[in-house]
Amino acid sequence: MLTVQDQFVRPGDDQHPATPHGRIGVLLVNLGTPDSTSYGDMRRYLSEFLSDRRMIEIPQILWQPLLQTIILTFRPSKSGAAYKKIWMDETDESPLRYYTRSQAEKLAARLNSDRVEIDWAMRYGQPSLASKIDGLREKGCERIVICPLYPQYAAATTATVNDKVFDHLKTLRWQPAVRTLPPFYDHPAYIEALAGSIAAQRDALDFDPDVILMSYHGIPESYFRKGDPYFCHCAKTTRRVREHLGLDANQMRMTFQSRFGPQEWLQPYTDDTLEALPGEGIKSVMIAAPAFISDCVETLEELAIEGREIFLEAGGEHFAMVPCLNDSTPSIDLLEALVRQELSGWV
């Protein structure tokens, strides 16, 4: 018969001497990626993505019939074609998956701690948050830092990651202690890394851009009116980087991309701006995408390919895209600074 003490022995104590415990997990989380560009994989990914109540704030009884019968009949093919343009054939994966994994591996090497376990997950698609949280627990992590890789907070990005994490924690008898990384839109390490990448790209060009566009992923304007701080965070990032580079408001402008559906989204729109700039005498432009830590379909296809076509067809002459921080040394410097800050008191 078990004694009361026996019943409350924790995993890793004498009951399970081989089970590690007392470790700390760090989980880097990015938006998500389909497993391939096939219709079936794209449909599964988009169904999960567009079924998120944080992403689409329409009553599900109205939204799901439209999504499952009309949108997901046609959109997987269109999105698959976009992904095919930027798919990494050598490793058979999206750039977002490649760079997020690389960031985790390089951060682990940088921290070089036997006590801290670094891993990565996607909010939508694979590897899932639930599987990675379980994996960290199996490795003895009793405390976990969840790191949504979104510099600017939005309910449709940062909040939905945290929602999914705590939804899984609800299913666990024994939950790890959890911290969540706050938005870092004005963190000195982020501003330094972002401004440095923009300056390096500008200096490497064979032309001098008339305007640098800071293009952020948009959200519906109604979300902003409900109190989402995303627009304000984007504005502060833009201002801090502009000041760091010694530019004025005409030399660096803020725009928003990737709108979906008929409602109004945050403006000015990136595509409309690119089309209008040549008419204003702006013939040379460079674009950065500060809302994205890693290059993805929104940066490599929507901006670098479609954005270029829009600008040049409207009469522009020179176009350049600033790569995201990806797994560069400044990117790992940034992640190390953020993670060490959140590990304070635990390590």
Rank of each mutant, 00 (worst) to 15 (best):
T237G: 13
Q5G: 11
I61E: 07
D272N: 08
Q251G: 10
W265S: 00
L335D: 09
A130R: 01
N30L: 09
I198K: 02
M42A: 12
E309H: 01
S222N: 10
E301C: 05
E298W: 08
S258R: 03
K283M: 06
S222I: 09
L28F: 10
V26L: 15
R53M: 01
D206P: 03
L312P: 03
L312D: 11
S215F: 11
Y216R: 01
E142P: 04
A156G: 08
T160F: 02
R115Y: 11
E57H: 10
E313V: 13
Q257K: 09
V285A: 05
P229G: 02
G345L: 04
F256T: 00
R202A: 02
K283I: 05
E302Y: 01
T3M: 15
E264A: 15
L334M: 11
P148L: 00
S94F: 00
I118L: 12
S36W: 13
Q64M: 07
D167A: 15
E57M: 04
P323W: 03
I305W: 05
C147Q: 00
F224K: 15
R308W: 13
R240D: 08
V26C: 12
R242E: 09
I191T: 06
L266R: 08
G279P: 03
R202P: 03
A159Q: 06
H16V: 07
T3Q: 11
S47C: 06
I86D: 09
G246F: 13
V161Y: 07
L247P: 01
S77P: 00
S79Y: 03
R179E: 03
E342F: 06
R179G: 11
E48R: 14
M214R: 00
P127T: 05
I56Q: 12
E57F: 09
K236L: 06
I70P: 01
R225S: 08
R110E: 13
I118Y: 02
C234H: 09
P330S: 01
Y216E: 01
T157K: 14
M42C: 01
A235R: 08
Y269C: 07
A289K: 08
R54H: 09
Y230C: 05
C147L: 04
L343C: 09
P182Y: 14
Q201D: 09
A159M: 11
A204C: 14
R202T: 06
S258W: 11
A199L: 12
M1I: 03
A193S: 10
I56D: 15
G25M: 14
S344N: 12
G261V: 12
Y39W: 12
S36R: 15
T91L: 09
Y190M: 06
L46G: 05
I282G: 12
C234A: 03
I146A: 15
R173V: 06
S328L: 02
P209G: 04
R44F: 07
R173S: 05
L277P: 04
I332M: 14
I24T: 07
S284Y: 06
Q251H: 02
F166N: 15
V241Y: 11
N30H: 02
P220S: 11
H244A: 07
S197A: 02
L266W: 12
I71E: 00
R253W: 10
F224N: 12
F207N: 12
S94A: 10
W265C: 02
A155T: 04
G32D: 08
L129A: 09
H244C: 10
D206I: 01
Q126R: 09
T160P: 00
L27R: 00
Y45T: 04
D333S: 13
P220T: 14
N162P: 00
T255M: 06
L335C: 10
I58G: 08
S258M: 06
